[in-house]
């Protein structure tokens, strides 16, 4: 796509507000006009607003290069990274709507409280290698490839925000969300790891609540094939342990 040339005035509708006592998003969408330069992303426009129109506009961002995952928000209704959403890829005549992630309690303006995610991570059994003698550890790039895809995750929590199990059904207490199913997959498929997280995946991470509708995969800015490569393989592993009579029998007599 060609870049539009020169500076263009564009309209932005930006949510501004504070939470009520329960963390609900209370506020309104305010309209701003920003002189947009070629190549700008949404975050550029918001930082311009901060510097010129609204110095106290709360935005969470760090690297502005799609590597840290801080600036997740909802742009024109789609969960996206503000630093990766190009303005010249959006219709020129329509205003750009920016709202905070709806799934999480509001802190202020575009910033939400994502601490729930950090709590989930603490409950996951960490990497547990099969022995302590590191000099014997060997595995091929093929094994690394599979796990590295999951470890690309920048923890922007857009998948958590997009997942209807959390977003609409609010299964915060019964479901770990795509991000942590990805993390669990990275541990379960680690060639050296021997910890058994399958019961956790079924009971506490609640993988059965996922109905593989793939919004996590659609919205992942790192293009991790969350559903196909992490969640479905984990579901199949849960089937091996809990549903398939043949593999259950084999597991019981010690064949894996």
């Amino acid at each position: 796509m060609m870049m539009s040339l020169g500076v263009v005035d564009r309209e932005f509708h930006v949510f501004r507000g504070l939470p009520d006592a329960d963390g609900e998003h209370i506020g309104e969408v305010k309209s701003f006009t920003v002189p947009v330069q070629p190549g700008w992303v949404v975050l550029d426009a918001l930082l311009y607003l901060q510097a010129h129109n609204a110095p106290d506009l709360a935005i969470r961002w760090n690297c502005k290069a799609a590597k840290c995952g801080s600036c997740a928000a909802e742009i024109n209704g789609l969960p996206s990274l503000m630093c990766k959403t190009r303005l010249d890829h959006m219709p020129l005549d329509k205003p750009v709507l920016v709202r905070p992630m709806r799934t999480f309690p509001l802190i202020k303006d575009l910033v939400t409280d994502v601490s729930w995610n950090y709590e989930i991570n603490k409950r996951i059994t960490p990497f547990t290698p099969y022995n302590d003698d590191q000099s014997t550890w060997r595995y091929f790039q093929e094994d690394a490839d599979r796990v590295q895809e999951f470890r690309k995750c920048i923890e922007c929590f857009l998948c958590q925000n997009s997942c209807h199990v959390i977003r609409h059904h609010r299964k915060f207490n019964h479901f770990a969300g795509p991000r942590f199913l990805v993390r669990l997959a990275s541990l379960e498929m680690h060639p050296l790891d021997v910890a058994d997280r399958i019961p956790f995946i079924k009971e506490e991470a609640g993988i059965g609540l996922c109905n593989i509708t793939k919004c996590c995969t659609e919205r992942c800015p790192e293009d991790i094939r969350i559903t196909d490569n992490a969640i479905i393989p984990l579901k199949e592993r849960v089937v091996d342990r809990y549903y398939d009579p043949i593999t259950m029998l084999l597991h019981k007599i010690g064949i894996k």
């Binding site: 960490p126 990497f127 290698p129 590191q134 550890w137 060997r138 595995y139 091929f140 790039q141 094994d143 690394a144 796990v147 590295q148 470890r151 990275s186 541990l187 680690h190 790891d193």
Partner: peptide
């Protein structure tokens, strides 16, 4: 660096399976 691998880091590998 080896300690990181012990804690779960997954580095790119050499053909014989060590850290590239």
């Amino acid at each position: 660096v080896k300690e990181l691998e012990k804690w779960g880091a997954v580095f790119d590998r050499t053909p014989d399976g060590r850290i590239l």
